[in-house]
Computed example of a mutant assay.
Amino acid sequence: MTTSRRLAERKVEKFQKNITKRGVVSETSTKKGKDYPVGPVLLGFFVFVVIGSYIT
C-alpha cells in the first residue's frame, strides 16, 4: 500500500515545523534563580529539630 500524496505532504509539513522549533525553550519551563524547593518556615523547623536533638 502506498500513502497518498496529500498525507505525505502533511507529514512532511509537520516534521518541518518541528525542525524550526528545535532548541526553543518556553520561559515557563525555565526555573527562576530564587525559587527554593523548601519554604523558609519548613527549613527553620528542620534546623530547630536537628539542633534541638543535638543539644539534648
Rank of each mutant, 00 (worst) to 15 (best):
V24W: 03
G44S: 15
V24Q: 15
S26Q: 11
K32R: 10
Q16K: 05
K34Q: 08
I51Q: 03
S53C: 03
K31V: 12
R22D: 15
S26F: 10
G52A: 06
T30N: 11
S26G: 09
S29M: 08
V25M: 09
Q16L: 04
K21L: 09
F48I: 01
I19Y: 04
G23S: 15
G44E: 14
K21G: 09
K31M: 11
N18R: 13
V38L: 06
T28C: 01
P37A: 06
V50Y: 04
I19E: 07
T30Q: 14
T30G: 08
Y54V: 12
V25K: 13
K17I: 01
P40E: 12
V41D: 01
P37F: 08
V38S: 05
L42W: 04
K34C: 06
T20V: 07
I51V: 13
Y36S: 15
G23R: 10
L42K: 01
T30D: 10
S29E: 13
Y36N: 14
S26T: 05
N18E: 08
I19R: 11
K21N: 11
N18P: 01
T30R: 15
S29R: 00
V25I: 07
I51H: 09
G39E: 05
V49N: 05
Y54L: 14
K34S: 14
G23W: 15
S26L: 13
S53M: 07
F48D: 02
I51E: 06
L43E: 02
D35H: 05
K32Q: 14
L43I: 08
T20R: 00
G39L: 09
G39K: 08
V41P: 01
K31G: 08
L42G: 11
V49S: 04
V24Y: 04
K31L: 11
L43G: 03
N18C: 04
Y54Q: 09
P40G: 10
G23K: 13
V25G: 13
G23L: 14
V41R: 01
K21M: 09
K21P: 02
V24F: 04
D35W: 04
T28W: 00
G39A: 15
R22S: 14
G39H: 03
T28H: 02
P37Q: 05
I55Y: 13
P40I: 12
V49R: 00
G52M: 07
F46S: 04
L42V: 00
V49P: 00
K21Q: 13
V25T: 08
P40Q: 13
V47A: 05
L42F: 09
F46Y: 03
N18K: 11
G33L: 04
K17P: 06
P37R: 06
K31Y: 08
T20H: 01
I55H: 11
S53W: 04
D35Y: 02
G23A: 15
G23Y: 15
G33H: 05
V41N: 01
S29K: 03
